[in-house]
Write a protein that binds this DNA or RNA. Structure first.
Lengths: 210, 210
DNA sequence: TCCTTGTGTATACATGTGTATACCGTCAAT
DNA sequence: ATTGACGGTATACACATGTATACACAAGGA
């Protein structure tokens, strides 16, 4: 049984709630958690060996959740422009719907715990790989070699996560952030098409097209 | 007198030392700090009102230091490729030489304290503005409108900071990270040159050049 | 000379923390 | 019907934390 019930669920939810407010996963206290969950402090031990295990488990659930979310992303899209727009829209909406999970991910990705950092990085790389393979399979940008697509995917995933906090916290900037992210992606891929051209080549190319 | 002396200096240094190890600025304790500094816990109060003020001051010193470092960046560079290479080299070396300051910046940029976050963001935006104005003044990429240069600068600054932790912690990846970052910047600017072209335009352009 | 100011120390207190031990109800299996 | 695991509780302990008050001592100006 992998699903959360009862006290364990309450504790995890309490953790996510606290994190969204002001805290970070690694700074949560056992008593604090129990208090927020409305349980006796010692109940914590019924479900987790210590706080590290708690953190890892929370991360695990978040990862599973995100993964199932991203999987739904495999949709139709005619062009790469279209794809980037759709993807960005979807991902940001996901972040907005799961602010706690997003905050955890952003905070702990550079947080003080090497354990959590490693786990999160693996998770991000997996997402990036999926994204890249999707792009390659659907031949959205076949002018760019696969390895470059993977690299850009990794960058993009991180950039989006980076902007996610602002997206969540500053509603009036959401549209701007989303468009900015789309520009980011498009410039990366378009720029990558010119990777093997020298700067001189590009300058003459630009003059020709004007 | 803006320079740090005696106990105050010791406390700030202790803070930076602790942060580089495992901690984050906002999670530092007053007693912990004093212990690391070899001082009596209450000496802390002689210099700082509370831990928030301590954090802000530390950030202030870091910001001042970084600013003076970045200012030295205004150097000669023939082309934008050359400039991006030089800049990236310099910035990463700076990070390497100031791991504590870098770690603080990365951690707190998305950390739990809104106060520190705001302060850091302002600092980053200032750096990005400087970078953009430098690029514009020296006409390194005059095919791209100023507003776009500013946008790319903001993205770049954040991306570099993002990668800084890996750069510091994984020596064997440093070269790779640096080259990756250069590609990032070049693709952004090259991609931006094509901003006002449709996807069809680009495809024909690519075919012509082959 | 005295007095103030700056810096560091010592002691003390209330509060919060992680953890250990022991107790209790529910419920399913034997 | 008894047993044992599971989830939850109560009490207690040792320790760390932020903070308040009071003391010490050096340097400098009046």
């Amino acid at each position: 049984m992998n699903v959360l019930t009862g006290g364990k669920l309450k504790l995890v939810q309490a953790g996510l709630r606290l994190i969204t407010e002001t805290r970070s996963l690694t700074s949560l206290g056992l008593r604090e958690l129990a208090r927020e969950a409305g349980l006796n402090p010692n109940t914590f031990y019924r479900h987790f060996k210590n706080l590290d295990e708690f953190g890892l488990q929370v991360l695990g659930y978040i990862a599973a959740d995100m993964k199932s979310g991203v999987r739904e992303l495999r949709q139709m899209a005619e062009s790469s422009e279209q794809a980037s727009h759709d993807t960005v829209t979807y991902v940001y909406h996901y972040f907005l719907a799961n602010p706690a999970a997003t905050t955890v991910a952003v905070r702990e990705l550079h947080g003080p715990s090497p354990l959590l950092r490693k786990a999160l990085e693996a998770q991000l790389n997996a997402s990036a790989r999926e994204m890249a393979e999707d792009i390659i399979e659907r031949q959205l940008v076949n002018a760019v070699p696969p390895e470059t697509i993977h690299e850009i995917s990794r960058m993009t995933i991180r950039y989006i996560l980076f902007r996610a906090m602002d997206y969540i916290e500053k509603p009036e900037q959401r549209e701007a952030i989303q468009r900015e992210t789309e520009r980011f992606i498009n410039r990366q891929f378009r720029g990558a098409m010119l990777d093997n051209l020298s700067q001189g080549d590009i300058e003459t190319l630009m003059k020709e097209s004007s």
